[in-house]
Structure formats: structure tokens, C-alpha cells
Design a protein around this nucleic acid. Structure first.
Length: 292
DNA sequence: GAGTCGTGGGA
DNA sequence: TTCCCAAGACT
């Protein structure tokens, strides 16, 4: 289909001219560096990732370096990025890479997918960005660009569909190197131009062929996207509890934890969840620490 | 498949 | 100010 190939040139040209200079995109960025960035970028804005990423790569330049440290150090160094289980999983992935892959991030997509914390998106992203392989990379940005440009809807559905995978596969350039650049280019287009709230169609290289624009930019009529209530949830309590652990040099007491949330029932439930997840370790009666 | 899991900044 | 949501994974 010429209509397919016709999308490639303008998007690739736009990316060449407009891409952000990000450390994990530098020519000397290792596969490990790419993997660290992908874990951190899951549901987290680039701006907040940057300083933590730099610190992590300086401190742990290889999977082996991270694997040598207690998981709690990874959790502490995660700082306030959010979803701290990612730190635990990244540490576990580093351990698996060290023990099962001779310290080298695997190039094989299936082996990547088998690592802790690596799902469909991250496996494709690492294989594509770090190893320049041909994979469809479907993140929230890409899904939104395709929903608009191809399907003519303002937003994609909540969960990735088979139709989206077909679309992504169809649009993927044949040449692996070109496919890898295409993947990051579409993602960048979604992040900078085809944004969720107020797309900047004036600067969009494919606005002329965008199905959503051609349809008059109709508003989203699908099911309401689920909101993320936060205030008063267990997640908020977990965050407060873990912040106490992160900010303390060593083990903390029950009293220190009790001080951050009034509801004892909810507080106990949240703490129990953190212990179950392996983010917190009981050391003695009423004493807790980050995992050793 | 729907719920859970943090955090903070921009519109 | 309030609300939306930002390169998902896992159960």
C-alpha cells in the first residue's frame, strides 16, 4: 500500500528534525541503559525520570553492578518516581541477566519478555531501540497516534486490541534499522505533537492524512477512561509509609510509621501489602527496613 | 478483563 | 483549584 509507505517519510523526517536529545538515545547508550530508562518511563514523565536515570547509570553502569546490591538500595535510589515495585523488578531483572545471561542484556525478544517487569511493550522497546530489531512498539503514544491518524478516533481503547497490533505490524517498515527509527519516531510524535489533551496538529507532519482530522476531529465517544482516584487510597498510604523507609538511613520503628496515617486499619493493610510485595522487610517486633 | 499499583506537574 | 494523565506490568 502506497498510503502506508507515504506515512514513513514525513514522520521520519520530522523525527530527524525534532527529536529530543535524551541520554538513553545517545549513540553510546548501552542496552542496559535503554532497559533502565524503559522501566523508569513506565507511566512516568521524561522530565522526572532524567535525574534518577543519570544517578542510576552512574552508580550501576551494568546489570551485575546492580545485582550485587541489596534490593532495598534500588528501592531507595528509585526516589519518588512512583510505582516502586518497578525498582524491585529492575533489580530482579539485573539478577536474572547476571545469572542467566552472563551479565548481558539478552537480544532475543522472548528472553527479554521472560525478565521480571518486562512486558509486551518493554520487550519490544529494548529489542528495537537497543538492538535495532524490527518490532512493533505499542505504547500509549503510538496507540494514540494510530487511533487518530489511522482509525479516526480521538483516543484508543483502554486495552490494546488485536486490531491495533495488526495496524502497527502493517505500518512497520521492512528494513530493521528503519523500523527501529520509525518506532521511536511515532512515539516521539505522540509525546510532542499528537498529545492526549491538546494535539498540535499545525506542527504534525501527517495532519494532511489524519483520519481523525478529516472526520472533523470528533470527540471521543467510547467508554469513559477510568479515572485514577488517589486521595485516601491504600496507594497513598503505601507511598507515605515507604517514604519514611526511604528517607531513613536504617530500620524504622512502628511509631515512625504510625505517624504518617491516622487510620490504623488501613495503615496496617498498606504495610502488610508492602511486606507482601517485598518492598518492606520486618526485622523484629515493630521494626521495619527496606529489603536486604 | 477489570483492579491495583505512586507521584507530581501542566492545562 | 481541580482534574487529567505520563515510554505498563501483573494478578
Amino acid at each position: 500500500m502506497d498510503t502506508v509507505a507515504a506515512l514513513h517519510r514525513p514522520v521520519l523526517a520530522w523525527y530527524s528534525a525534532s527529536a529530543r536529545s535524551l541520554p538513553w538515545r545517545a549513540g553510546d547508550a548501552s542496552a542496559w541503559a535503554v532497559m533502565v530508562s524503559e522501566f523508569m518511563l513506565q507511566q512516568t514523565p521524561v522530565k522526572r525520570v532524567l535525574p534518577v536515570y543519570e544517578e542510576w547509570l552512574r552508580r550501576w553502569p551494568t546489570p551485575e553492578a546492580l545485582a550485587k546490591e541489596p534490593a532495598g538500595e534500588a528501592v531507595r535510589a528509585w526516589g519518588r518516581l512512583g510505582y516502586p515495585r518497578r525498582a524491585l523488578r529492575l533489580h530482579a531483572a539485573a539478577t536474572a541477566i547476571t545469572e542467566q545471561h552472563a551479565g548481558e542484556v539478552p537480544r532475543d525478544h522472548a528472553q527479554l519478555l521472560a525478565l521480571p517487569g518486562v512486558g509486551e511493550y518493554t520487550a519490544a522497546a529494548v529489542a528495537s531501540f537497543a538492538f535495532r530489531q524490527r518490532h512493533a512498539v505499542l505504547d500509549t503514544n503510538v496507540r494514540r497516534v494510530f487511533a487518530r491518524a489511522v482509525t479516526g478516533q480521538e483516543y484508543p481503547a483502554n486495552a490494546t486490541t488485536a486490531a491495533e497490533r495488526r495496524t502497527a505490524a502493517t505500518l512497520l517498515p521492512d528494513d530493521p534499522e528503519t523500523a527501529a527509527t520509525w518506532a521511536v519516531a511515532v512515539m516521539e510524535l505522540g509525546a510532542l505533537v499528537c498529545t492526549a489533551r491538546t494535539p498540535d496538529c499545525v506542527r504534525c507532519p501527517i495532519a494532511g492524512g489524519c483520519a481523525w482530522r478529516q472526520a472533523g476531529s470528533p470527540p471521543w465517544e467510547g467508554p469513559a477512561r477510568r479515572g485514577q482516584s488517589y486521595e485516601g487510597t491504600d496507594r497513598q498510604v503505601r507511598g507515605k509509609l515507604l517514604a519514611v523507609l526511604r528517607d531513613a538511613p536504617g530500620p524504622v520503628t512502628q511509631a515512625q510509621l504510625d505517624a504518617v496515617w491516622a487510620d490504623g486499619v488501613q495503615r496496617a493493610r498498606a504495610l502488610d501489602g508492602l511486606v507482601t510485595d517485598g518492598l518492606v522487610e520486618p526485622v523484629a517486633a515493630g521494626v521495619y527496613r527496606l529489603p536486604g
